[in-house]
Amino acid sequence: MPSRPAFLRPVRRTRAGDFAGYAVAVVALVAGGAVFTRGILTWTRGPVVAIAAILLTGWAVDKVRARRQPGDDDGGPGADVDGPDVEGAGGDGRDGEGEDR
C-alpha cells in the first residue's frame, strides 16, 4: 500500500487521544460554525471537519504521550499495528471502548 500521511496510518486508539480529538471537533464545529456558518456547517464540510479534528488531534496526542512514556506500548507510533489486522475490529464482540483495538 502506498505510504500515507502519519495521522492516517493505523495506530492503536487511546482513550486520551479519542477524548482530545472529539473535544477539538466539538469546539471547531460549534465555534467555527458560529463564525463561519456555511464555511463549515454544510452536510459535506461539517463531517469532514469533525473527522479531520478527531484524526489529527488523536494522532498528535498519542504521539506526545508516546514521547513522554517511551515504555508504554499503548497508543504511540511505536505501537503501530498492521491496520486491517488490528484485533478487535469489525464486529468481534469486544467491548471496543478506549484502548480497544
Partner: peptide, 30 residues
C-alpha cells in the same frame, strides 16, 4: 472501507460519529 481503502479503526469510528457531531454541534452553532 477498512480492508480495501485501508482506513484505520479510529477513522471508521470517527466516520460513524461524524454526523452525530455535525448534527449536535450545528444546533448550537446556528
Amino acid at each position: 472501507l477498512r480492508h480495501r481503502v485501508g482506513l484505520s479503526d479510529r477513522f471508521l469510528l470517527a466516520l460513524y460519529h461524524a454526523y452525530f457531531l455535525y448534527g449536535a454541534c450545528r444546533i448550537f452553532a446556528w
